[in-house]
């Protein structure tokens, strides 16, 4: 899906935990995430800390969309 959407020349960032899969399916902008069942969450944290963490992560993803790259790049 990532690759087919990017084929329309729209930048796309893949937020995923198993980043080897992101790479093998052809994602170019990759933000590694926390865990498979809660990629952008962490139930072990206090709710306010969890939200701060999620915000930092999503911000990183948004920033990745504004970053020029020439090959598959991890933003971590």
């Amino acid at each position: 899906m990532v690759k087919e959407i990017e084929r329309y020349n729209i930048p796309i960032v893949h937020m995923a935990t198993i980043t080897t899969i992101s790479e093998s399916v052809g994602a170019n902008r990759i933000v590694p995430t926390v865990a498979i069942p809660h990629p952008v969450g962490n139930p072990a944290l206090k709710p306010e800390d969890e939200k701060l963490m999620r915000k930092a992560m999503v911000k990183r993803a948004v920033d990745a969309l504004a970053t020029e790259i020439s090959e598959a790049t991890h933003f971590d």
Partner: peptide
């Protein structure tokens, strides 16, 4: 591939500038 092609076409037509796709 089919899903990505269909979704991408809609996003392109809607003038979306960037996409965040999360996977579990």
């Amino acid at each position: 591939v089919k899903f990505g092609t269909e979704i991408g076409a809609e996003l392109k037509a809607a003038g979306v500038d960037g996409v965040i796709l999360t996977s579990t």
